[in-house]
Write a protein that binds this DNA or RNA. Structure first.
Length: 357
DNA sequence: AACTCGGGGAC
DNA sequence: GTCCCAGAGTT
């Protein structure tokens, strides 16, 4: 454990909390201390920027204003609200966690770290965030912002990409957290990381804790935190099929309940074929489709964190004897009722603009 | 500890 | 192009 200067810690927490109270942004989840509202915001904010979250948060709270409204909502409904936000298991886990609170905690979000972390989708960060922001409990909430700020202020040189490094920062915070105002202290750390102590070009001249910052005194603010690189994404080539039935309806397919984009809808897709014959063979093999499909002058490249999809588009009129499991024929107007990942929104937008549907 | 799981904005 | 974002679950 790093030996921390107690005088420096006192100045640090005082300066940080004062700065936060003066500079905090007016965000929709900062209107009260309702633990459910804090919970929803914290899950949405996982790996997601504030500006992206705001419209999703407001729509979500209109549809599910209380835990009882979310606990037993249809999966298609919660995925539709989350459509385009990414990491879709977050909303499924949020619902499971909320249902757990409704059924086993009498609707009261628990006040211990152990109980919080037992809830689906609530890990060390989110547990600390809810406990400190909703209940003013002195629990650390270590996210990427916090590790960047602490790495600089306390000259921590451990690789923040390593899972074990989070515990080092938590240990610092158990000493440094302002027990008189855990909420403002934790949110102040994150707000500082978002607005001043940024990854590149940190605004040290505007920083309220510049005097306490070891990195600044050493001129290392741009060199910290230490973070190892992650490996690059692999490319997967896919053929997507706009299949139209006798009633001018389009077949869409529900993805499996686990894995990438679980439970979302898409046009039927197969691994890219190397020839027209091979493609027709695959269509017959997978779906018993014998009609010819025709290539469209459209291609989309969609980048995930760890995968890149390159999608070609084919169109065909079909009359199916048996409709595959997980398929549904929908009219042009019905499409918007289903949750599609962004990659499919790109494909469908083209189909609609070109009048193919 | 390493991998999976989305999408977008800043540079 | 690269990085990273109010991370968690699985293996």
């Amino acid at each position: 454990m790093k030996n921390l200067n107690q005088h420096k810690i006192e100045s640090f927490k005082t300066n940080l909390v004062h700065w936060y109270e003066q500079h905090k942004r007016d965000l929709p989840w900062r209107k009260n201390q309702d633990p459910y509202q804090i919970w929803v915001s914290e899950v949405m904010l996982q790996q997601t920027r504030v500006d992206t979250v705001i419209p999703y948060y407001e729509r979500f709270m209109r549809l599910f204003p209380e835990m009882d409204d979310l606990a037993y909502a249809e999966e298609d409904a919660i995925l539709k609200v989350w459509e385009g936000l990414g990491y879709y298991s977050r909303v499924r886990n949020l619902q499971k966690g909320v249902r757990e609170v409704v059924e086993h905690y009498g609707g009261q979000v628990p006040k211990s770290r152990k109980e919080m972390e037992s809830l689906k989708g609530v890990g060390p960060y989110t547990a600390g965030a809810i406990l400190s922001i909703a209940y003013d409990l002195p629990e650390p909430a270590v996210d990427g912002n916090v590790m960047r700020v602490l790495s600089r202020v306390f000259h921590v040189t451990d690789d923040i990409a390593k899972p074990s490094t989070r515990k080092i920062h938590e240990a610092i915070l158990y000493e440094a957290i302002d027990k008189n105002n855990p909420s403002s202290f934790n949110q102040g750390l994150m707000e500082l990381g978002a607005l001043v102590c940024t990854p590149t070009s940190p605004g040290c001249l505007l920083c309220p804790v510049r005097e306490q910052c070891e990195a600044f005194s050493l001129g290392l603010q741009e060199a910290l935190p230490i973070k190892s690189k992650k490996k690059k994404a692999k490319t997967i080539h896919l053929d997507a099929f706009l299949l139209i039935d006798q009633d001018k309806r389009v077949y869409i397919e529900k993805r499996p309940s686990e894995g990438l984009l679980a439970g979302l809808w898409q046009l039927p897709m197969l691994p890219q074929a190397s020839s027209d014959d091979e493609r027709q063979e695959s269509l017959q093999q997978a779906y018993e489709i014998t009609e010819k499909v025709h290539k469209q002058p459209f291609h989309v490249k969609h980048v995930f964190s760890h995968i890149i999809w390159e999608i070609d588009l084919y169109i065909g009129d079909v009359s199916l004897l048996t409709v595959p499991e997980q398929w549904k024929a929908v009219s042009k107007e019905e499409i918007e009722g289903y949750a599609f990942p962004v990659s499919q929104q790109k494909v469908l937008s083209y189909c609609l603009e070109e009048g193919l549907i």
